[in-house]
Amino acid sequence: MRKTGLFTFMLIIAVSCLNEPDCYQLNNNTVVIFFKIIGGGNDQVQLVSVQSPDTDSIFAASNPSKIVLPLNPKNEETLYTLQGTDVTNTLVFGYKRQVQFVSEACGERYYFQELNVLNHDFDSVRVTNAIPTPTPEPAGANNVEIYRCAITNIMGLSFPQDTPVEQITSDFATIILPPNAILNDFFLPLDTGKSSTTYQFDFGDSLKTLYVKYSRTKKKFADVCGNQRILHELLVDYTMTTMDSTVVSKDSIQDLPVINLEIIP
């Protein structure tokens, strides 16, 4: 009797522990890409489209700092073209992939590994995890980080809502807003070649001047960016500025840009 009981118990344990295939997250066929700023934090990019010549599909960024792209299981390379608002970049992934049969219900799965970036024209690219990510992606997944050099001369201005301006000119050669724009929060470049920049705002019925001064420090974040000038200790020269009110809310220039001045024209 005791033998029979033991026999039955062990039989139940054995049968209950038999494995069944799981069809969830079979393929690790995606690359999670984060956009970052060298010497800074996460970047925010505006991608118009992301495409690969291997497919008609057009991919979109899931948020401004991140995009998730699939790898082509038919090749060991996948090329992507990332078209932004100002610039278009290319990125070529290399990898190894193997197929494994899972079950009649699940079919097969692709296992990708040894992910690397074969070619790119970004400032810098780093592979953080050479094992691509399953679909749907788990929290915290990160395979590739794309870096750009920091832009160190963009000053943020905050105007009262919907302030019309006909033209803005500066005392150095740069590209500013198109004529007849509506101002809310917007951003202007500072002249890194000297320690002050003057702007003329044509509001249609009045012409106002903004004169800002700042300190400059040379810094090399990475070889690819060379020496860069960091602008800080921003202040307004009220003797030269003719705005009704100009308050410095943040005196250092950052990337991503922040609002540095609050202005009432």
Binding site: A14, L18, N19, Q98, Q100, F101, V102
Partner: peptide, 25 residues
């Protein structure tokens, strides 16, 4: 062992190759 393109799926005597441990009876 495996080839570059295919991972073993079912190993005679063992079972599913993607299982780190497997019960047999």
């Amino acid at each position: 062992d495996s080839t570059d393109d295919m991972m073993p799926s079912d190993v005679p005597g063992y079972g599913r190759a993607d299982a780190s441990s497997y019960w047999g009876f």
